[in-house]
């Protein structure tokens, strides 16, 4: 574990009008760690992820990527964002491009690779997620699980240092969730640093190095998943998981 965290979030605050969505959220993540955020809907988990890569600009607070502050970094944010791959609940694949072109686009336009190099890199990433045989399919021709795997490949192609997953399996049928989780586990095994928002409790506890419970814009409990069943510090988390399973 190096001494500078890959990502450090400090006192992040964000409001929409009168609604305080994030109330001074702080945490840090080191290389290879997997932090999983759980909590009821509408508590600001997505907002937190978007405030990390600045797709949403926080009202106050700081985000440090390898020690560099990025909230107020102006145009340099486009460079920083490549280091933080993001996977969305609804995949957000570019609808007009085939799977392989989805992965190639930012390689061509952002990383400025030439066509052959971009194609080779894109095919490699598709292979990693088991989607090389669907390279020429358009998003509308893919199942949800396949589309999500392509979107993971697209993010990985930028060689990120940390991956942000925002409910990557929530839009998927149960049997399709598994293929995406498998890809994520494989990624984790290769040492990728991950921040994951999910409602899949079994996956969360087996995947995470640390679990965070968010409620109303705040981290209310956190710790290693092995503590969840017994620790007094995980009372609310146990209640949340219990209520969630029953739902």
């Amino acid at each position: 574990m190096s001494d500078v965290p890959i990502l450090k979030v400090e006192n992040l605050c964000k409001s929409y009008g009168d609604l305080e969505v994030l109330k001074s959220v702080s945490f840090e993540i080191y290389k290879g760690e997997k932090k999983v955020f759980v909590g009821p809907s509408g508590t600001g988990k997505s907002t937190l992820l978007r405030c990390i890569n600045q797709l949403t600009i926080p009202d106050s607070g700081f985000v440090y990527l390898n020690g560099e502050e990025i909230v107020h970094s102006g145009k340099k944010i486009n460079g920083y964002r490549q280091k933080m791959g993001m996977v969305f609940q609804n995949f957000n694949l570019f609808d007009h491009l085939t799977a392989v072109r989805n992965v190639e686009l930012a390689l061509l336009k952002v990383k400025k690779l030439d066509k052959a190099a971009a194609h080779e890199k894109a095919m490699y990433e598709l292979e990693q997620v088991g989607m090389a045989d669907r390279a020429d399919f358009y998003p509308a021709q893919l199942s949800g699980g396949q589309a999500q795997r392509v979107s993971i490949a697209r993010a990985l192609a930028m060689d990120p240092e940390v991956m942000l997953f925002d409910e990557p399996t929530s839009a998927l049928d149960p049997e399709l969730k598994r293929e995406v989780m498998e890809v994520m586990r494989k990624l984790a095994d290769r040492g990728m640093t991950c921040i994951v928002v999910t409602h899949e409790m079994k996956f969360a506890t087996s995947f995470a190095t640390e679990i965070y419970l968010m409620e109303k814009g705040e981290i209310v409990e956190h710790g290693p998943p092995s503590d969840i069943p017994t620790s007094p510090g995980f009372v609310k988390t146990r209640a949340f998981m219990g209520s969630y399973v029953e739902e």
């Binding site: 797709l55 964002r81 957000n92 570019f94 930012a106 993010a155």
Partner: peptide
Amino acid sequence: QLLAARSLGM
């Protein structure tokens, strides 16, 4: 669509 593009550094 635009969010995804921007998340890739575009």
